[in-house]
């Protein structure tokens, strides 16, 4: 909301018939300290068709020894040109007083069929009320440097947000790693004896006779751990009753017990290997581990 505190109307004379009026408005025209920004708005009412010549605007920079023009923006609508002016005052006032902001003139032109008509608009100067920042006679100090404000501390950077983000990302990375490990089966899961046996089998490799018997022993151990007691060939039907998820594997388990009997009691490892070859041992154990997941 801009109150017309400082409004000046220029009555259009004969020579500037195309410029109807010029009005300067400021939000407040008093109470400025040195270093303050002063915003003003100049409204130029013109005949339709006239537009501002940007090159005729004053260039931002120092205007007087105490006043800088910081910037000008232009807003044009039919019949009106509005200038937004930003000044900065550096007037070190000893008492509250009025200082004069200088005026300036801008050119306007209208390109009609008969040629270009140009006109000049005078933006009038206006006065600004500046105020002192300090008392005229400050309290006496022995060291004159004490009249100055101190240097102040340099603001520190804040490492906390980055630190927090790093910790959150690290936590998420560990969770993702755990998910990966779970997916790839890197960890021994309690209560999954067949998965453990399958891992043991992978480590075992295919080493001759001893390896084959060791593989059978792993499956035995898996069965024993699943049931919580020793499972022999005769116990198979009862075992399948107690653990129905493995019922699908019944025939395969029966063949396994047969091979086991041959290998351990009949000392016919080669015959056992012929009846239940290594790939079938692996595949069977994998199926058991998969069935175990459904339990």
């Amino acid at each position: 909301m801009i109150a017309a505190c400082c409004a000046l109307l220029l009555q259009a004379g004969a020579a500037v018939a195309q410029v109807r009026s010029v009005e300067v408005r400021v939000p407040r025209a008093f109470g400025y300290f040195l270093g303050d920004l002063v915003r003003a708005q100049a409204d130029i009412a013109v005949d339709p068709g006239f537009s501002l010549q940007r090159a005729s605007l004053p260039a931002p920079g120092p205007l007087t020894y105490w006043l800088d023009l910081r910037g000008i923006t232009v807003e044009e609508s039919p019949g009106r040109v509005r200038l937004h002016l930003t000044y900065q005052t550096f007037y070190a006032a000893l008492d509250a007083r009025q200082v004069a902001i200088p005026g300036f003139s801008v050119s306007l032109e209208s390109a009609a069929a008969g040629g270009t008509t140009s006109a000049k608009a005078e933006i009038p100067g206006w006065s600004l009320g500046v105020s002192p920042l300090r008392e005229v006679q400050p309290e006496r100090h022995d060291d004159p440097a004490e009249y100055l404000r101190p240097d102040g501390r340099v603001s520190r950077l804040d490492p906390l947000p980055d630190m927090r983000a790093a910790l959150v990302a690290l936590g998420a990375a560990l969770l993702a790693l755990a998910a990966l490990g779970y997916d790839r089966g890197w960890f021994a899961r309690p209560g999954r004896p067949f998965a453990k046996a399958a891992r043991g089998l992978r480590r075992l490799g295919r080493e001759g006779e001893g390896g084959y018997r060791e593989a059978l022993r792993l499956i035995h151990r898996g069965l024993d751990e699943t049931d919580g007691r020793r499972v022999l060939a005769d116990d198979l039907p009862a075992f399948l009753d107690r653990h129905p998820t493995f019922r699908r594997e019944g025939p395969a388990l029966a063949r396994f017990f047969e091979a086991s009997r041959r290998a351990f009691f009949g000392r016919e490892v080669e015959a056992a290997r012929a009846s239940l070859p290594w790939p079938e041992v692996e595949a069977g154990l994998r199926r058991l581990a998969a069935a175990e997941l459904e339990a």
Partner: peptide
């Protein structure tokens, strides 16, 4: 990819 990317992000923030 997830653990690798998150690990890199954590390193960058750190």
């Amino acid at each position: 990819a997830l653990p690798v990317l998150l690990g890199l992000a954590s390193l960058g923030f750190g």
